[in-house]
């Protein structure tokens, strides 16, 4: 059940980010300055942590979603749902470690300070 709770929570979170993200991207149509200013905010250290959180949510939602699809369409899916959840957790962890390292490295390389 907790995977389902997690799936719902991450889903809601991603949905609201999506609204914001489409709006901020739409600024490219308003003016380049505006867009660059807003995008600049994403490069703030606090937002960097937020981005890791966001990607964490997306990756979990994605992997768990794939697990749900397997449960739905693979004959043995219901029998191995627990093992698959473990696999999701492991994959999530590996992906997130890789992503975080890369993202933080990029961030610190290009960071110009506050």
């Amino acid at each position: 059940m907790w995977s389902w709770v997690g799936h719902r929570i991450t889903g809601v979170g991603i949905f609201f980010f999506l609204l914001v993200h489409v709006l901020d991207t739409s600024l490219v149509r308003v003016s380049p300055e505006a867009y660059d200013a807003v995008i600049g905010a994403y490069k703030h250290p606090i937002m960097i942590m937020g981005e890791i959180g966001l990607v964490g949510a997306i990756v979990f939602h994605a992997f768990n979603g794939l697990r749900i699809i397997l449960v739905d369409f693979w004959k043995q899916g219901t029998r191995y749902h627990r093992q698959m959840l473990w696999a999701v957790m492991v994959l999530w962890f590996v992906t997130m470690v890789a992503f975080s390292i890369r993202h933080l490295m990029i961030f610190f390389e290009g960071w110009e300070g506050f």
Binding site: M1, W4, I68, D72, T78, R79
Partner: peptide, 24 residues
């Protein structure tokens, strides 16, 4: 929503979620 609570709760060991999936 395939939370599997039903399968875990069933005292008769019925694979409830599986049955629901088969109906879907």
């Amino acid at each position: 929503r395939t939370t599997f609570n039903c399968t875990e709760a069933c005292p008769r060991g019925i694979e409830v979620t599986k049955a629901i999936q088969e109906v879907k």
